[in-house]
Design a protein around this nucleic acid. Structure first.
Lengths: 120, 120
DNA sequence: TCGGCTTGTCAATACTTGCGCACACATCGT
DNA sequence: ACGATGTGTGCGCAAGTATTGACAAGCCGA
């Protein structure tokens, strides 16, 4: 994994709108660009398209072309770069990190934290 | 955890220099601002100070004043916001996330991935 | 105690980057 | 052909970054 990958991923995650888009896609299996844009009444299609491009270049989402639609889905394992960074910094509290992940995993499929990332 | 917290954390992590600073501090127990600045020959003290301020406001590092020095250390459990977001998006691959963390934990105290975050 | 030195931050300034919008263009279905 | 879906481009505006110069705080030797 190259540093530029981390750069793209963290830069992509820096924007609240993009995190909201990512969460939104994560709630469904697939979403078309228009469906995503429909959830943000403050943004136009162009802005959403631009965000999706950034997310795609960062490898966070993948697109599937279907006619005139483009369905976006979350890439399964792009969190590796994030985890790699976290483990490198938080070596001392890795047990806490691991337990936090496992707790969240055991908490079920719909953690209420997700509402935290709604459009700003 | 409030959205603004996530905002501050992800914004702070967006900058490669700040990630490098965070990794650098993570390698040691504590580091003075000057020692950190010494590791970046392209940056002045002012820039490093500014980055440290952002990291501190995001709750990623904490400072301990000691005479004219200010020693910075990594805050033990601020990755929760990041983990919370990841778990909300990557529910489907949570097992992989957890195992990745545990693998890194079992790998010991010095993962070679750390070199990946050197100053760009 | 005083002056000098170190450490770190603050203030103001230029520079770069990123976001959102309006418009135009390509593509696809009916 | 016409409308719908998405994206590429150029522009204006806001936000962030690094630098310079100056300042507050603290240590130490003479």
């Amino acid at each position: 994994m190259s540093p530029s990958d981390s750069d793209a991923i963290f830069s992509a995650l820096a924007d609240p709108t993009r995190r909201a888009i990512l969460s939104l896609i994560g709630e469904h299996e697939e979403l078309a660009a228009g469906e995503i844009a429909a959830h943000f009444d403050t943004l136009g299609r162009t802005a959403v398209s631009s965000h999706l491009r950034i997310l795609r270049l960062a490898g966070l989402v993948s697109e599937r072309r279907d006619g005139r639609f483009r369905h976006y889905s979350v890439t399964p394992t792009p969190a590796d770069a994030v985890v790699a960074f976290l483990t490198s910094v938080y070596q001392n509290s890795l047990e806490q990190l691991a337990s936090a992940v496992q707790d969240a995993s055991a908490a079920g499929e719909a953690p209420s934290d997700r509402a935290e990332e709604r459009s700003a």
